[in-house]
């Protein structure tokens, strides 16, 4: 998964504000979309709450793989909740994560943008592949890989655009370092893809109505 693990002060106030404003505009659009669409029933709220709890719980667990990585289930949020609810969920998860000291408060805006990319790309890929007759497991797994890959690209773009205060490293060196980091991140994306594939296949078997929303 992709998450900007930089402390407050790494980005200038100008860039922190820009990413926050962009994230809030997108969240506003998500809320507008939710209100304008079918609305939110109690079942949707329950699913959203469960996705928030699951994502928060797993997001903080550092796995002993490649020296330390963690999952965040953002493409699963996209597949089950859709991009509008997913946007709100990733905002809540990022705020709660910052509250326990995982990520800076100033980074929430940028991290919401990264996670929203994962949610939207995961949702979009899953829906696109639904038109084919590919199995649910392969569809969900592919959606996760593509979602997390695009999330990593967004993360790299945000850091390169913002720049990091107090470092002498050139953007090219930074791109090289971040590409290696994204490469390592994709290792955990493989695990997340298999886990999500099984979860979505199981849900399709026992509660197919959850996937047809």
């Amino acid at each position: 998964m992709a998450h900007i693990h930089l402390e407050d002060g790494a980005f200038t106030l100008q860039w922190i504000s820009i990413w926050w404003v962009l994230a809030l505009v997108l969240i506003g659009l998500c809320l507008f979309w939710m209100k304008k669409g079918k609305g939110i029933d109690s079942k949707t709220i329950t699913i959203a709450a469960m996705l928030t709890a699951a994502s928060f719980a797993i997001f903080q667990v550092n796995m002993p793989l490649f020296g330390g990585v963690h999952m965040n289930l953002t493409p699963l949020i996209g597949i089950l909740g859709g991009p509008a609810i997913g946007g709100v969920i990733v905002l809540i998860v990022n705020v709660l994560s910052a509250a326990i000291g995982h990520g800076g408060w100033g980074m929430i805006g940028a991290n919401v943008l990264v996670n929203m990319t994962e949610v939207s790309a995961g949702y979009g890929t899953y829906k696109l592949l639904s038109k084919t007759k590919v199995s649910t497991f392969a569809r969900a797994g592919t959606a996760v890989l593509i979602g997390l890959f695009l999330g990593n690209i967004t993360m790299i773009a945000i850091i390169l655009i913002s720049g990091v205060q107090g470092v002498t490293q050139s953007r090219i060196d930074m791109l090289y370092g971040l590409s290696l980091l994204a490469g390592v991140n994709m290792g955990v994306a493989v695990i997340e893809a298999i886990v999500t594939g099984y979860i979505v296949s199981y849900i399709e078997r026992v509660r197919p109505d959850m996937l047809r929303r």
Binding site: H5, L6, G67, V164, V167, L180, V184
Partner: peptide, 20 residues
């Protein structure tokens, strides 16, 4: 990527990538 960058924790890997 892991073989090139070596064994590091998340924070350390991030700091190393951006030059902190």
């Amino acid at each position: 990527a892991y073989a090139i960058s070596g064994n590091m924790g998340i924070e350390e890997r991030f700091n190393n990538a951006v030059g902190i």
